[in-house]
Amino acid sequence: APALADGYGLGRAATADEIAAWDLDVMPDGTGLPEGSGSVSDGEDLFVEHCAVCHGDFAEGVGNWPALAGGEGSLADEDPVKTVGSYWPYLSTAWDYVHRSMPYGNAQILSADETYAIVAYILYSNYIVEDDFVLTKDNFLDVEMPNADGFIVDDRETAEAHFWDAEPCTENCKDEVEITMRATVLDVTPQDDAEEA
């Protein structure tokens, strides 16, 4: 191929089928979404079949497995609950991640329509859509994610400019030093069985 002449001439051109098989990512503006659609009710059946064992019938999470719904308005709490509804800024991420990496342990088994349906059910579980909603490629961008405006680009160089301090204190920097917390009080560090005896 002529394009290779300028470089080292290593590798070969990727075929359209190869690119289609691996290039699955979906961007926030919908770029990469395939044709398809799926309803909340179909999504509920699929969710129970493929997802509920870890994520719960209502996407509320089971044990230590992630909750996909709930936590609305909790981000400033002492213990924020971050879910698709309460935290995720873009619906595209949910579609992309479910389609490529879920179900956990059996990824890439879901068709495009099944993925639309499951994402629709996750939206319903977060009270973002009604129970008769059908998610499609065409109405995808109409969905408003509650925390879409909840993110700022890394601002450490301004918000933490005071950490760039060329001359930190080296002598008599404090009047007193008191121990305020000890890890041994929590006692959650892995230990030797012999030590417990």
Partner: peptide, 12 residues
């Protein structure tokens, strides 16, 4: 690409 993907590992 002409923009970020905003994948799961850079949003959630």
């Amino acid at each position: 690409m002409d923009g970020p993907v905003e994948s799961r590992e850079e949003t959630s």
